[in-house]
C-alpha cells in the first residue's frame, strides 16, 4: 500500500529537513562548551528521519546503510579510545598539543572556543553518527510493523 502524504506536505518536508539537521550538527559540535554533545544532537537529527518516514511512507533501500553507519561510528569511538593506550585507555592525547582540536583553554569564564578539547569533540561526532543511525533504525522498524498491521485492517474493512 502507498502511504505517501500529499504533495504540499512532501514539499514542506524537503525544506524543513535542512534547519533540523543544521541545528543537530551545531549541538553535536559544541558539546564541550555548552550543554549538548553526541547523544542529544544525534536524537535531534534522528527526528528528521522520523519526519521523512511520515511524509514519504518509506525509507527506500537505505536500511543496510544505516546499520553500517551505526557500526562504523562505534568502531571509530573505540579505536580513538584505544589510541591513547600509551598512557591509559581513554587518555586525552590531543588536548593542548596543537593540530586538530588542540588549542589551549584560557582560565575562567570565556566565550567558548571550538578548537579546544582534544578527543572529546571527536568522540562527540562519532557518538552522534551512531545515535542518529540507531534511532532512525528503531523508528523505521516500528513503523514497518505499524504499516503492515494497518494495511491488514484496511483490507478487512473494504
Amino acid at each position: 500500500m502507498n502511504w505517501k502524504m500529499s504533495r504540499i506536505v512532501r514539499t514542506v518536508t524537503n525544506f524543513l529537513i535542512v534547519p533540523i539537521i543544521v541545528y543537530g550538527i551545531y549541538l553535536v559540535l559544541h558539546g564541550h562548551l555548552t550543554p549538548g554533545g553526541g547523544f542529544q544532537g544525534g536524537a535531534v537529527i534522528a527526528s528528521s528521519t522520523a519526519l521523512l518516514i511520515i511524509a514519504y511512507g518509506t525509507l527506500g533501500e537505505h536500511e543496510k546503510d544505516l546499520s553500517s553507519v551505526e557500526a562504523l561510528g562505534l568502531t571509530l569511538f573505540i579505536l580513538i579510545a584505544l589510541l591513547g593506550i600509551g598512557t591509559t585507555m581513554f587518555y586525552n592525547f590531543l588536548a593542548g598539543a596543537g593540530g586538530v582540536f588542540g588549542g589551549t583553554i584560557p582560565e575562567g569564564i570565556n566565550p567558548g572556543y571550538i578548537n579546544t578539547g582534544g578527543t572529546v569533540p571527536l568522540m562527540n561526532i562519532f557518538v552522534g553518527l551512531e545515535v542518529t543511525a540507531a534511532l532512525s533504525l528503531i523508528i523505521w522498524m516500528m513503523s514497518k510493523e505499524t504499516f503492515v498491521i494497518n494495511s491488514e485492517k484496511k483490507e478487512v474493512k473494504d
Binding site: S67, S68, E70, A71, L72, L74, T75, I78, L79, A81, L82, M89
Partner: peptide, 13 residues
Amino acid sequence: LAVPLLFAFLTPI
C-alpha cells in the same frame, strides 16, 4: 573489555 566491544561493532561492517 575493549576487544569484545570492538569486534562486536566490527561484525555488521
